[in-house]
Simulated assay, not measured.
Amino acid sequence: MSDSLILEVANVETDVLTGIYSEETGRPQPLRISIRAWLRPRPRYTPDCPLTESKNYMDLKFAASDGLPKDVHFKLIESVADHICETLFLQDVRVERIEVKIVKLAISEAGEDIGMTLTRERSAWEAYVG
């Protein structure tokens, strides 16, 4: 078994233009986004390791909030997740895998989490985007 480093940001709430129904289009919907990013770890992290030896957690938060375009309507929340994955893969070549969970808060009736989780591997993404 090989070592892994998983960075996580959970439950970032943000408004995104998304949806396919007429009552959803034209206005932002609240989403709750959680991200897990797998990086190739260093052999060892000493007390004086600089931030450049890992990844800033705030990059993950940015990809789930301010990094999402405010003027683009995403029909599917899967498209939102895909945009987040692409942002993180482009930011840092050490990111090997990303998992994005999105919950649509506006459609919850009794506090349940309704949404999806997308997992992308860098190798598959690179093969697709060419």
Score class of each variant (00 low, 15 high):
Leu76Gly: 02
Val95Leu: 05
Leu60Phe: 13
Met1Phe: 11
Thr52Val: 08
Ala63Lys: 11
Glu86Ala: 15
Ile84Val: 15
Val80Leu: 02
Asp48Pro: 00
Pro30Thr: 11
Ala81Leu: 05
Pro43Arg: 13
Tyr21Pro: 00
Met58Leu: 14
Leu60Glu: 15
Val93His: 10
Arg94Thr: 02
Phe74Val: 00
Glu13Arg: 15
Arg120Ile: 00
Asp3Gly: 03
Ile33Val: 14
Gly115Asn: 05
Leu17Pro: 07
Asp82Tyr: 09
Ala10Gln: 14
Glu99Thr: 09
Pro28Cys: 03
Val9Tyr: 12
Phe89His: 04
Val103Phe: 05
Arg27Phe: 07
Ser2Thr: 14
Arg32Gly: 01
Ser2His: 14
Val16Ala: 02
Val16Ser: 01
Ser123Leu: 11
Asp59Thr: 09
Asp82Gly: 05
Trp38Arg: 15
Glu53Pro: 03
Tyr128Thr: 09
Val72Ser: 01
Glu126Pro: 00
Pro30Trp: 07
Ile35Trp: 02
Glu121Lys: 11
Ser123Met: 09
Ile35Pro: 01
Ala10Asp: 14
Trp38Asn: 03
Glu23Cys: 06
Asp92Ser: 11
Leu88Lys: 02
Arg36Gln: 13
Lys55Asp: 01
Val72Ile: 14
Asp92Gly: 11
Asp113Trp: 10
His83Tyr: 15
Pro43Asn: 12
Val129Gly: 03
Arg36Met: 13
Val95Met: 04
Asp59Ala: 06
Asp92Lys: 05
Asp71Asn: 14
Asp82Ile: 04
Gly67Glu: 03
Tyr45Ser: 04
Lys104His: 09
Thr25Cys: 08
Gln29Pro: 07
Pro69His: 08
Glu8Asn: 06
Leu105Met: 12
Gly19Tyr: 03
Ile77Phe: 08
Thr25Pro: 00
Arg120Thr: 00
Gly130Ala: 13
Met116Cys: 15
Val100Trp: 03
Ala10His: 14
His73Asp: 12
Ile84Pro: 03
Ile114Tyr: 07
Ile77Glu: 00
Glu8Ser: 12
Ala110Cys: 03
Thr25Phe: 07
Glu86Leu: 05
Gly111Gln: 04
Leu105Glu: 02
Arg36Tyr: 10
Lys55Gln: 10
Ala81Trp: 04
Glu8Pro: 00
Val72Asn: 01
Ile102Leu: 06
Glu86Arg: 08
Asp3Leu: 12
Val100Asp: 08
Met58Asp: 12
Arg97Met: 10
Val103Ser: 11
Gly67His: 10
Leu76Phe: 14
Ile35Gly: 01
Thr18Arg: 03
Gln91Met: 12
Thr46Arg: 12
Ala37Met: 09
Val72Lys: 11
Ser22Tyr: 05
Val16Gln: 00
Val12Pro: 01
Lys55Trp: 04
Lys70Ser: 14
Val72Asp: 00
Glu8Leu: 02
Cys85Tyr: 07
Val12Lys: 02
Lys101Gly: 06
